[in-house]
Structure formats: C-alpha cells, structure tokens
C-alpha cells in the first residue's frame, strides 16, 4: 500500500471540526499529549511500517516548507 496524499476523507471540513472539538478546553500541554496519543492510535491502525515511514517523511517535509527550509526535498 502507498501512502495516500490525495483527498481521501469523505467530509474534510467535518473531520477538521471533530479534531478541533477534541482539543477544546485543553491546555497546550494537554493538547500536546492528546496529539501524541492520537498519532500512536492511528499508527497502530495503519499498521504498515512502509506507509508510516512515508507519512513521517511527508510530515517532516511539510514542516520544513513552512519554516522556509528545503521544501519538498523528498528523501529517497
């Protein structure tokens, strides 16, 4: 399986709402912890190391673009 980076969520706005709602009322620290739990839960659900590696790469590259780094220089 390849990492899906094209639209795959039926209701993107709805999901985004859910995500923010889950964080509502949490301190930055609590949100941080929730995100970490969420990552672990989703990672286990995906259950495919190759896909997860690709996702980690994509997430890291995305951050670099934002920070004005070497955007999109996808590692092999």
């Amino acid at each position: 399986m390849d990492l899906i980076l094209t639209p795959n969520l039926p209701d993107p706005d709805g999901f985004y709402d859910d995500l923010l709602a889950a964080h509502e009322g949490l301190s930055a620290e609590e949100s941080h912890a929730l995100n970490a739990r969420l990552v672990l839960i989703l990672a286990n659900h995906v259950g495919d190391r190759a896909v997860l590696r690709a996702a980690l790469r994509a997430a890291r590259d995305g951050g670099e673009t934002n920070a004005g780094g070497s955007g999109g220089a996808a590692a092999p």
């Binding site: 941080h32 739990r37 672990l40």
Partner: peptide, 20 residues
C-alpha cells in the same frame, strides 16, 4: 517524554500500546 507518557496512558486500556 510526551510520547513515552502517551504510550503509558494508552497502555492502561489498549493492548497495542502495551507492546510499546
């Protein structure tokens, strides 16, 4: 530390996290 504690929090209820 955040991830480590997230694993421990999840391990209470979820077998997948115990493996970590």
């Amino acid at each position: 530390a955040v991830f480590r504690n997230a694993v421990l929090d999840l391990a209470r209820d979820h077998p997948f996290a115990r493996a970590m």
